[in-house]
Design a binder for these strands. Structure first.
Lengths: 387, 387
DNA sequence: CTGTTAGCGCATTCAC
DNA sequence: GTGAATGCGCTAACAG
């Protein structure tokens, strides 16, 4: 029931192909021949004339509607005719035109994704999850990636609407405050998002926001750390803001003071983490642990610490976030929070399918978990690390 | 002239929108209202009835053909009529149907990409480059990513053909030996590839294959290293094979022997690099440098070396490949070869556009360059590292 | 069982 | 200047 409406007549996960035996038969050969429609004399101007239903019909001496029936396994057709048609389709190298089909069926079997630049592993993982899940439901993915400033999101939304996508998945933190985007997503085709949408009204897939920050902070506090530095992601982003807020709350829960001097923006990037760490240690003393809001920045943090001759975790513990593939082999291997990026992508597709099925589904919250490795240890006896 | 045929009437980089003033005028408002076609009484069964040219026409008291003209800035239309039509389009929230347009124009302004799983940064970078360049040419990207085994590439090709993409970009090393894929790409819609295609006949975009391996090896030899270990990518891949072959050649050029014991498969992954290094050092002695065929594996290599108490570059130098974002902040920062992934993606799109313009264009070869950082140094005086 | 009639939404050609 | 006719390739409903 998670399947796209127009898929419903077919077995799940079969997409559009393979479901109908006849179709499976002819398409294997057909696919090898793109425009070998030699029997197709009508060649409108320049472009490759690709075989159409009519061409198949002509070759099989039937009307093209009958061909349509056979190739879609719909109405009843005489076995002999059916056979002729299938052979004709194979011979001619017929490949159905999804555009025309969509025009008629009012469903493009296509899903639009608007994503933050995915050079970084984490959005890429979500995208991989989306694409895989979509594919398994027989949906194609149209990809639009945003420039860092997140402007022209509205333009891409429009393109997706023009292409009549059946649904939209947003993975664009840069657009989370854009009211116009919010309006469009509420008024346009069904949508779900991996990040907040201004004005709400769009189903969300998130990873336990509280735990994501609370787990690592509690871990550090349990190890005896009292002055915990924070290297944040872009501070405009809700997720970064929220994680920092949770950091404050957990500190408060344990009766620890909040010191704004301990918080620095690392902008999600390796170099940002590196620079933020130096700034942090230059101006604040007594830091024995650093909470880094993603693993990429943590790589920079480890490097900066190393440059300063501080050992990890001896002098300073480090906790990351994401469980990026490199986290397992940094020096030392990074204690971090495992985030379910690929799962979130897949969940988003399923949620979108529910949304398309006209219900107004509930948000999905995915669990996160700690991965304990070697970058964290008890706070050093002397409470002030040398820095 | 690098622009897609159907773009030619419009200024480059304008895509389909913004080129025609009139169009720019009405689409701003129109985009805010998806199915607000309240004036549209015909509601065929269930789906959202979206406003069409006819609806706009009805509201403006003209024929829909005239609306088409105005909205595309084609034929001459009376200013008053034009104005009425534009307002009607705005009011009604008209959004053109790209499917119908493509059906008619025989060009979907769409480009299919078949890519290896892009969880890793390098294929993701190429994809980002492709998407950005495509977008700037007004083309949408349909994304299909392959499972690691690279099977069912043929299936995805077929889907792209059904969707009548204007061209295909392959970034699928896993399919480089697949004859069927080669045949399809030669017979089907215009295609270019970032990796070899079985049987050739498809324009290629590559990064100087010789230099990619020769540069780092020469660097190490110049530093006095004579026993240079190699951690390769998946050895089935042409690129891995070729880099290893070049390694041999450069060795030979310098009169150094080739020792197969010095070569280990790291399968492109962090953990692979880690494991390969341990295997290498367990069985071969005297290694003072390791050539790693990508930076991700190099992270694992550095970790393994560190585990064994070997200092980098004191005991053992390490050279990577790619200039992955983390390479600048590994411990120590990694000397590596900078690969132009994003550029390659962009170049592939431009090459594809040439290819579509019916010429049979030449392959593109992009330059690579060394990035010298701290992981390489002169070979230690005692020729055998302790391991 | 098969072919006919009717669109889907749009662009193009040609009358008026 | 404008609209009527035609067709893109396909699916759906009904007629024969």
């Amino acid at each position: 029931m998670l399947c796209h409406p127009t898929c419903l007549r077919q077995p799940p996960n079969a997409g559009r192909r393979g479901a109908v035996p006849d179709r499976a038969m002819w398409q294997n050969r057909a696919v090898r021949q793109w425009c070998r429609a030699a029997t197709c004399e009508r060649s409108p101007s320049g472009g490759d004339p690709v075989a159409s239903l009519r061409d198949v019909a002509a070759r099989a001496n039937v009307s093209f509607q009958t061909v349509s029936k056979v190739l879609n396994g719909k109405g009843a057709v005489a076995p002999a005719t059916r056979q002729r048609i299938i052979e004709a389709a194979e011979d001619i190298g017929y490949i159905p035109n999804a555009l025309a089909r969509s025009l008629q069926s009012r469903s493009s079997l296509t899903l639009g994704v608007i994503t933050v630049d995915f050079s970084n592993a984490t959005p890429a993982l979500s995208l991989v999850g989306i694409e895989r899940e979509a594919r398994q439901h027989g949906l194609s993915v149209i990809l639009s990636s945003l420039e860092p400033d997140g402007s022209d999101c509205v333009r891409y939304l429009r393109v997706l609407m023009e292409r009549r996508v059946d649904g939209i998945i947003m993975n664009a933190p840069a657009a989370e405050e854009d009211e116009e985007v919010g309006r469009l997503l509420r008024a346009g085709p069904p949508a779900v998002s991996l990040h907040d949408i201004a004005g709400g009204g769009v189903p969300l897939v998130t990873a336990e926001p509280e735990a994501t920050a609370a787990l690592p902070i509690r871990h550090l506090i349990a190890l005896g750390h009292r002055r915990i530095g924070v290297v944040t992601g872009l501070q405009q982003r809700h997720s970064a803001q929220h994680r920092t807020a949770v950091y404050r709350e957990v500190l408060a829960e344990h009766g620890l003071p909040y010191d704004p001097l301990l918080v620095e923006d690392g902008s999600w990037e390796v170099e940002g983490g590196y620079a933020a760490t130096h700034r942090l240690l230059d101006r604040a003393s007594g830091i024995t642990a650093i909470y880094v809001q993603n693993d990429l920045m943590a790589v920079g943090v480890l490097n900066a610490l190393h440059e300063r001759g501080l050992s990890v975790p001896g002098d300073c513990s480090v906790v990351g976030c994401d469980d990026h593939p490199v986290a397992a082999r940094t020096i030392p291997p990074l204690t971090t929070v495992r985030m379910p990026f690929a799962d979130a992508g897949a969940a988003a597709v399923r949620l979108l399918l529910e949304r398309i099925a006209s219900t107004s589904p509930k948000d999905v919250v995915l669990p996160v978990s700690m991965v304990y490795r070697a970058s964290t240890a008890s706070a050093p006896a002397s409470r002030a690390a040398r820095n």
